[in-house]
Protein backbone atom coordinates (compact mmCIF):
# COMPACT_ATOMS: atom_id res chain seq x y z
CA UNK A 1 0.00 0.00 0.00
CA UNK A 2 2.84 2.34 0.95
CA UNK A 3 4.55 1.59 -2.39
CA UNK A 4 1.35 2.36 -4.32
CA UNK A 5 1.08 5.73 -2.57
CA UNK A 6 4.72 6.58 -3.32
CA UNK A 7 4.32 5.61 -7.00
CA UNK A 8 1.05 7.59 -7.21
CA UNK A 9 2.75 10.63 -5.67
CA UNK A 10 5.76 10.35 -8.03
CA UNK A 11 3.44 9.91 -11.02
CA UNK A 12 1.47 13.04 -10.11
CA UNK A 13 4.64 15.07 -9.56
CA UNK A 14 6.12 14.01 -12.92
CA UNK A 15 2.76 14.25 -14.73
CA UNK A 16 2.26 17.81 -13.53
CA UNK A 17 5.85 18.74 -14.32
CA UNK A 18 5.43 17.33 -17.82
CA UNK A 19 2.04 18.91 -18.56
CA UNK A 20 3.13 22.37 -17.40
CA UNK A 21 5.75 24.23 -19.45
CA UNK A 22 8.95 24.94 -17.57
CA UNK A 23 9.04 28.40 -15.93
CA UNK A 24 5.28 28.88 -16.25
CA UNK A 25 2.27 28.29 -14.02
CA UNK A 26 -1.34 27.82 -15.08
CA UNK A 27 -3.29 31.08 -15.47
CA UNK A 28 -5.91 31.35 -12.71
CA UNK A 29 -8.08 34.10 -14.17
CA UNK A 30 -8.34 33.03 -17.82
CA UNK A 31 -11.16 35.50 -18.59
CA UNK A 32 -9.07 38.47 -17.48
CA UNK A 33 -6.03 37.36 -19.56
CA UNK A 34 -8.05 36.60 -22.69
CA UNK A 35 -9.82 39.98 -22.35
CA UNK A 36 -6.44 41.76 -22.23
CA UNK A 37 -5.26 39.87 -25.33
CA UNK A 38 -8.53 40.64 -27.14
CA UNK A 39 -8.28 44.36 -26.21
CA UNK A 40 -4.67 44.53 -27.43
CA UNK A 41 -5.67 42.80 -30.67
CA UNK A 42 -8.52 45.29 -31.27
CA UNK A 43 -6.19 48.23 -30.57
CA UNK A 44 -3.53 46.94 -32.96
CA UNK A 45 -4.19 48.54 -36.33
CA UNK A 46 -0.68 47.93 -37.66
CA UNK A 47 2.32 45.96 -36.53
CA UNK A 48 5.85 46.14 -37.90
CA UNK A 49 8.63 43.88 -36.69
CA UNK A 50 11.85 42.10 -37.54
CA UNK A 51 11.86 38.38 -36.94
CA UNK A 52 14.28 35.52 -36.51
CA UNK A 53 13.06 32.03 -37.32
CA UNK A 54 14.60 28.77 -36.11
CA UNK A 55 13.66 25.49 -37.74
CA UNK A 56 14.54 22.65 -35.41
CA UNK A 57 14.89 19.22 -37.00
CA UNK A 58 15.86 16.31 -34.79
CA UNK A 59 18.20 15.02 -37.50
CA UNK A 60 20.25 18.24 -37.42
CA UNK A 61 22.63 19.34 -34.70
CA UNK A 62 22.08 23.02 -35.56
CA UNK A 63 18.75 24.74 -36.28
CA UNK A 64 18.13 26.30 -39.70
CA UNK A 65 18.00 30.05 -39.12
CA UNK A 66 16.08 32.54 -41.23
CA UNK A 67 15.81 36.30 -40.78
CA UNK A 68 13.28 38.74 -42.14
CA UNK A 69 10.76 41.50 -41.67
CA UNK A 70 7.08 41.23 -40.86
CA UNK A 71 4.25 43.73 -41.33
CA UNK A 72 0.57 43.47 -40.44
CA UNK A 73 -2.33 45.82 -41.12
CA UNK A 74 -5.82 45.16 -39.79
CA UNK A 75 -8.02 43.39 -40.77
CA UNK A 76 -6.14 40.84 -42.80
CA UNK A 77 -3.06 42.23 -44.54
CA UNK A 78 0.14 40.30 -43.83
CA UNK A 79 3.64 40.61 -45.29
CA UNK A 80 6.46 38.16 -44.48
CA UNK A 81 9.77 39.07 -46.06
CA UNK A 82 12.66 36.65 -45.65
CA UNK A 83 16.10 38.09 -46.38
CA UNK A 84 18.33 35.33 -44.95
CA UNK A 85 19.25 32.67 -46.11
CA UNK A 86 17.67 34.03 -49.32
CA UNK A 87 15.05 36.50 -50.49
CA UNK A 88 11.50 35.23 -50.30
CA UNK A 89 8.33 37.26 -49.89
CA UNK A 90 4.81 36.16 -48.92
CA UNK A 91 2.02 38.74 -48.99
CA UNK A 92 -1.58 37.98 -48.03
CA UNK A 93 -4.29 40.57 -48.51
CA UNK A 94 -8.03 40.54 -49.19
CA UNK A 95 -8.27 36.91 -50.32
CA UNK A 96 -5.10 37.03 -52.41
CA UNK A 97 -1.68 35.61 -51.75
CA UNK A 98 1.54 36.50 -53.56
CA UNK A 99 4.81 34.61 -53.38
CA UNK A 100 7.83 36.39 -54.77
CA UNK A 101 11.26 34.83 -55.29
CA UNK A 102 14.32 36.18 -57.12
CA UNK A 103 12.98 34.54 -60.27
CA UNK A 104 9.22 35.13 -60.31
CA UNK A 105 5.97 36.25 -58.68
CA UNK A 106 3.09 33.82 -58.19
CA UNK A 107 -0.46 34.86 -57.30
CA UNK A 108 -3.02 32.64 -55.57
CA UNK A 109 -6.65 33.13 -54.67
CA UNK A 110 -6.79 32.07 -51.01
CA UNK A 111 -10.58 31.86 -51.13
CA UNK A 112 -10.53 29.16 -53.79
CA UNK A 113 -7.51 27.30 -52.44
CA UNK A 114 -8.28 25.42 -49.22
CA UNK A 115 -4.65 24.89 -48.17
CA UNK A 116 -3.68 28.55 -48.67
CA UNK A 117 -6.87 29.73 -46.95
CA UNK A 118 -6.03 27.62 -43.90
CA UNK A 119 -2.44 28.93 -43.85
CA UNK A 120 -3.73 32.51 -44.24
CA UNK A 121 -6.37 32.15 -41.49
CA UNK A 122 -3.87 30.43 -39.20
CA UNK A 123 -1.22 33.15 -39.61
CA UNK A 124 -3.61 36.09 -39.22
CA UNK A 125 -5.38 34.33 -36.33
CA UNK A 126 -2.11 33.67 -34.49
CA UNK A 127 -0.82 37.20 -34.90
CA UNK A 128 -4.07 38.82 -33.84
CA UNK A 129 -4.73 36.34 -31.06
CA UNK A 130 -8.12 35.55 -32.64
CA UNK A 131 -7.08 31.92 -32.86
CA UNK A 132 -7.54 31.68 -29.08
CA UNK A 133 -11.31 31.62 -29.51
CA UNK A 134 -11.22 29.28 -32.52
CA UNK A 135 -13.21 26.08 -31.72
CA UNK A 136 -10.78 24.11 -33.89
CA UNK A 137 -8.22 24.43 -31.11
CA UNK A 138 -8.24 23.45 -27.45
CA UNK A 139 -6.39 26.21 -25.55
CA UNK A 140 -4.49 26.18 -22.26
CA UNK A 141 -3.06 29.33 -20.66
CA UNK A 142 0.14 29.67 -18.62
CA UNK A 143 2.04 32.67 -17.31
CA UNK A 144 5.14 33.94 -15.59
CA UNK A 145 6.03 37.48 -14.49
CA UNK A 146 6.59 38.81 -18.03
CA UNK A 147 4.74 36.51 -20.42
CA UNK A 148 1.44 34.77 -21.07
CA UNK A 149 1.78 31.50 -22.95
CA UNK A 150 -1.20 30.08 -24.83
CA UNK A 151 -0.84 26.46 -25.90
CA UNK A 152 -3.22 25.48 -28.68
CA UNK A 153 -3.93 21.88 -29.56
CA UNK A 154 -5.55 21.37 -32.96
CA UNK A 155 -8.78 19.37 -33.03
CA UNK A 156 -9.32 19.11 -36.81
CA UNK A 157 -7.79 15.96 -38.38
CA UNK A 158 -6.19 17.83 -41.31
CA UNK A 159 -4.40 20.23 -38.93
CA UNK A 160 -3.55 17.45 -36.48
CA UNK A 161 -1.73 15.71 -39.31
CA UNK A 162 1.10 18.27 -39.38
CA UNK A 163 0.65 20.30 -36.17
CA UNK A 164 0.88 18.92 -32.65
CA UNK A 165 0.71 22.23 -30.76
CA UNK A 166 1.01 25.96 -31.33
CA UNK A 167 2.64 27.99 -28.56
CA UNK A 168 1.87 31.72 -28.65
CA UNK A 169 3.84 33.94 -26.28
CA UNK A 170 2.24 37.29 -25.37
CA UNK A 171 4.30 40.04 -23.74
CA UNK A 172 2.60 41.25 -20.55
CA UNK A 173 3.62 44.85 -21.31
CA UNK A 174 1.10 45.25 -24.14
CA UNK A 175 -0.22 41.70 -24.75
CA UNK A 176 1.19 41.57 -28.28
CA UNK A 177 2.69 38.37 -29.71
CA UNK A 178 6.41 38.16 -28.93
CA UNK A 179 7.12 34.59 -29.97
CA UNK A 180 5.47 31.76 -31.92
CA UNK A 181 6.32 28.08 -31.78
CA UNK A 182 4.72 25.51 -34.04
CA UNK A 183 5.37 21.93 -32.94
CA UNK A 184 4.98 18.96 -35.25
CA UNK A 185 4.03 15.44 -34.21
CA UNK A 186 7.69 14.41 -34.57
CA UNK A 187 8.59 17.16 -32.03
CA UNK A 188 10.43 19.07 -34.73
CA UNK A 189 9.38 22.70 -34.51
CA UNK A 190 9.47 26.19 -36.01
CA UNK A 191 10.18 29.03 -33.59
CA UNK A 192 9.69 32.65 -34.62
CA UNK A 193 10.99 35.45 -32.39
CA UNK A 194 9.62 38.94 -33.11
CA UNK A 195 12.15 41.71 -32.51
CA UNK A 196 12.04 45.53 -32.64
CA UNK A 197 8.24 45.59 -32.70
CA UNK A 198 6.47 48.82 -33.63
CA UNK A 199 2.74 49.06 -33.05
CA UNK A 200 0.26 51.31 -34.88
CA UNK A 201 2.78 53.05 -37.11
CA UNK A 202 1.75 54.20 -40.60
CA UNK A 203 2.15 51.38 -43.14
CA UNK A 204 1.17 52.01 -46.75
CA UNK A 205 -1.33 49.68 -48.43
CA UNK A 206 1.13 49.34 -51.32
CA UNK A 207 3.30 47.18 -49.04
CA UNK A 208 0.58 44.53 -49.20
CA UNK A 209 0.51 43.93 -52.92
CA UNK A 210 3.19 42.57 -55.23
CA UNK A 211 3.72 43.46 -58.85
Amino acid sequence: MKKILIYTFLFLVFYNAKSQPSGFTAVKDINSVSEKIKKSSLETKTLDSDFKQYKHLSILTKDIESVGHFSFKAENKVRWQYTVPYNYLIVMSNGKMWIKTDKKVQTYDTNSNKVFKEINDLMVGMLQGKILSDPNFKTKYYENSTTVLAILIPQKPDLKEFLKEIHIYFSKTDYSVSKLKMLENSDDYTLINFLNQKKNIEISDSKFSVK
Binding site: I59, I90, F162
Partner: peptide
Protein backbone atom coordinates in the same frame (compact mmCIF):
# COMPACT_ATOMS: atom_id res chain seq x y z
CA UNK B 1 20.39 9.53 -46.61
CA UNK B 2 17.66 11.52 -44.91
CA UNK B 3 15.98 14.04 -47.25
CA UNK B 4 13.66 16.64 -45.73
CA UNK B 5 11.90 19.25 -47.87
CA UNK B 6 10.16 22.09 -46.02
CA UNK B 7 8.75 25.42 -47.05
CA UNK B 8 10.19 28.78 -45.96
CA UNK B 9 7.76 29.03 -43.04
CA UNK B 10 9.00 25.65 -41.78
CA UNK B 11 6.15 23.34 -42.80
CA UNK B 12 7.42 19.94 -43.95
Amino acid sequence: HRIVFLNEVGMK
